[in-house]
Amino acid sequence: MLDAILLTLKLATLTTIILLLLGTPLAWWLARSRGLFKDIIATLVSMPLVLPPTVLGFYLLITLGPDSPLGQLLSSLFGGPLTFTFGGLVIGSVIFSLPFMVQPLRNTFESIGTRPLEVAATLRASPLDTFFSVVLPLSRHGLLTGSIMTFVHTLGEFGVVLMIGGNIPGETKVLSIAIYDYVESLEWAQAHLIAGGMLCFSFIVILAMTLLERNSRKGREL
């Protein structure tokens, strides 16, 4: 079981880090631009919210599989097919959790408005400088929300993992899969332990986030 816990934490951490790096510029672009192309990208980013994870997992399986050109390319890069590996799992998680990172960040970026950017520009800050010295510090809240949502969401992912990761202990067998396994084999005590643990963990994390949000809002109103 420890294997599954560690694997799950590793997956969630990696997914969160990758999404912070990918999602931040993407959310910034979505918040700052206009036009049909942006709307199309924004829609694609939101798709994992409504699609059954199995649909996503199915397409990922096809795309990453050894029969697709992309799968072949990746397979030559990583020295083997990504399906049913931890690497494949990370890719699936990143795509599946994308909206959970991008949406809160985009909202935060939009709420900052243009004025701080203009002020920074009149104070000789280049756009990149402004992004790091003004936008990101003002977006701490959105970055935190996005990261926590992504982390927690990745912990609970099942469908995508099952489709592209399977159930390989130490490689792709994460907690949600482990529960499924224990229930299948009627090991109720183990299933209880993990399910209860995840329930408590999610509860604590979301409560902490709510309290944090209230505090930071109070601070801003002073």
């Binding site: 701080p116 920074a120 104070l123 000789r124 510090p137």
Partner: peptide
Amino acid sequence: PAHQRRVGYVFQEPSLFPHLNVTRNLLFG
């Protein structure tokens, strides 16, 4: 571009950076 023009601009609203104290706001530019 705006950031290469040597202007001092005072906006209608003070628009201080809320995450920086007064000194760091003053020294930003």
